Each structure stands twice: as C-alpha cells, then as structure tokens.
Simulated assay, not measured.
Amino acid sequence: MFVTRRSLLAGLGAALVARPGFAAGQEPLKAVATTGMIADAARVVGGDLVEVRGLMGPGVDPHSYRQTRTDIVAMTRADLVLWHGLFLEAQMQSFFHDLARRRAVVPVAEALPKSELHAHDDYKDKYDPHVWMSPRLWQQVVRSVQSALSDVRPDSAATFAANADAHVAELARLDAYAATALAQIPAERRVLVTAHDAFGYFGAAYGIEVLGLQGISTESEAGLNRIADLVDTLVARNIGAVFVETSVSDRNMRALIEGAAAQGHTVRIGGELYSDAMGAPGTYEGTYIGMLDHNVTVIARALGSDVPAQGLNGRLAAGS
C-alpha cells in the first residue's frame, strides 16, 4: 500500500496527540534531581512525560557532595531542578539560590510543615533533613514534586496528579508493612544503632530508639568519647546488633564491635542499610519503595521480627 508523505505526517501527529499528557510535537520536560530519592519520585510522577537526570548515585553522600562541571551544565540546561533542601545539600545551597534567579529550582522537602520536622543539636535553627525515612512524610514530598512538575508543564498536570495518586497509595502500603513488621520486634530489642543519625524519622514513625554514632551530617566526625560511650551502652543494655550504611564508611562501626568485644560482649553487624542513597540503578533497591522495603526488612529480621526475607513485594535481592 502506497503511503503519501502527507498521510504519514498526519499519522505521526495523531500519535503524538494520543500520547497521554503530550501536546503535539512536545518534548519531554527535562528535570535534574539531586538525590536518588527525589529522582525516583520525579520519574514515577512524571512518567514518560519527564526525562530525569539524577546527580547523586549509589553510595554518594549528599552532605558533602559538590556540583561538578557536568552537573552545572545539566542544571543550567534543565527545565526544572529539584533539590531536597533542609540543609541536606549543604555544599550546593549557594549555587541553587543563584540558579533560582534564572531557572525553576525547587527544594521539595522545604514544603513540609515545620511541626512535622525534627530539630537537632547539630544544626542551630535547622532541621533533620532525612525525611525520606518516613514513607508518610515522603508522600508529602511526592506531592511537592508533582506540584513542581505541574507548574512547569501545566498541560500535563492531570497525568502528573494521577501518577502521584498511584504512588502515594504504594507509599501508604509500604508504611503499613513497616508498621506491622517492626511492631513484632521484642521491646528489649527495639534499638537501632547506625553509622550516623539518619534514622530519626524512621524511629519516631515505628517506635524504635535510634542511636547514631555520628550526627545527622556525615561531616560531623565521631570522636573517641562518643565511640567509648556507645560501646558502654551496647554492653550495659546487651545490644547485640549494629547496622552499617551504604554511603558511610564502616570503620567506626567496626571500632564499636571491637570495643564491645574487649569488654566480653559480642556484637554483630545486623545488615547494611540505605541511608542517604539508594541501591544500584535498575534494581528494586534502586527505587524508593525498594530502598525502604530493604531497610525495614533487614532491621526487622535482625532485631527479632518474623517477616519474609524478600520483603513486602518479594523482590529483595538474595532475600536481604
């Protein structure tokens, strides 16, 4: 069958119009996100209407990250830049404030009500930025991402809203799983010892005491006195497990284990947790849902809860 050039162009135009959220000939919105968690939210909410570039990959510490020349080029060419805020990307704040004069630049966690944020001694007049550790709080950040995308591309707002609604429902399901799994931990074992104080919102959400060796920023070093105090706590309270993090060196956690052993108390590593960065791209743990599913499942099993080794969705690698 002979197809004329006119009919071919007409068909292509119809296909573009039929694609949900796209105007004819419209290119995907180009967004840059700092952390993997924000990039994941933008990809889920934006779908194929948004092309997302994440700056910080697996194992990258956002507290100390500085923008590279390539990052700067990407952000200055983007339609939208999404960053966390709450002093998480401390080394990049001045750049974002300058860029905001010329581009749509949105600190998505800054929209959270101050009443829901945790103050911290490390930062005078600032808040603990690790809000992604609570799926309930993260729902509000997802809505902030939705709003930012809709402001830049209002003709796609309905699609962004539908995608966000579906994702928020998944987050609510994850929250319910976490509450059930962690509630089974015996009272005397409800203590989470981690490399730095990134799990405060997690502990508050699920009734678990959190002891971080470093402060809420990895820039704050763990002194010898802090290590000695935490060793004494492990021994006195008979705490048998500590947790390392993918984006923080395990050197100080090994020092805790050795210090406890010197006092005749055995402490093991309960598992490796995702704190400031997600897993590898293309894996389940490389999504926000997978990251939190991993953390919940590893913590619950290590501290005495009987939960499936492969987590909420049966997708955790090697049964965690």
Rank of each mutant, 00 (worst) to 15 (best):
V17P: 02
A187K: 11
L49C: 04
L234R: 04
G240S: 10
L234V: 01
A198K: 03
V141D: 15
D293A: 07
G215W: 07
A179N: 13
T233G: 04
T233P: 00
A111W: 04
T194Q: 00
R237I: 00
A176Q: 12
A31N: 06
R77Q: 15
V106N: 13
S115A: 12
A119F: 01
A172N: 13
R43I: 02
R315G: 06
T4F: 02
R173G: 14
V131Q: 09
A158Y: 03
D197K: 05
P62D: 04
F95W: 15
L174W: 05
T180H: 13
I239Y: 11
L230C: 04
G319H: 05
Q91V: 00
V44H: 06
R136H: 12
A161D: 10
A78N: 09
G314Y: 02
G207A: 14
H167E: 10
R43P: 03
R77H: 15
D71K: 03
S320C: 06
R143S: 12
D48W: 06
A176M: 01
L117G: 13
D121N: 07
H130D: 10
A317V: 15
T287D: 11
F2T: 15
A31M: 00
Q146S: 07
P186G: 07
A277R: 12
D229I: 03
G200I: 10
Y206Q: 08
G203V: 03
A169N: 07
F199G: 05
T34M: 11
E188Y: 01
I239L: 14
M75A: 10
T34P: 12
L292C: 02
V193A: 05
A39W: 07
M92L: 08
E170C: 02
A39M: 06
Q184L: 15
D155L: 08
P62E: 05
D165Q: 14
D98W: 07
V152I: 03
I239F: 09
A158L: 04
V131K: 09
V52P: 08
P28D: 10
P186C: 02
A309M: 00
S64R: 12
R237G: 02
G85H: 09
L182M: 11
R143F: 02
Q91S: 11
P58D: 15
A33I: 00
R237C: 01
V267G: 03
E116R: 15
A198I: 05
D306A: 11
L29Y: 12
V108S: 15
R268G: 07
A74P: 00
I299P: 02
L256Q: 03
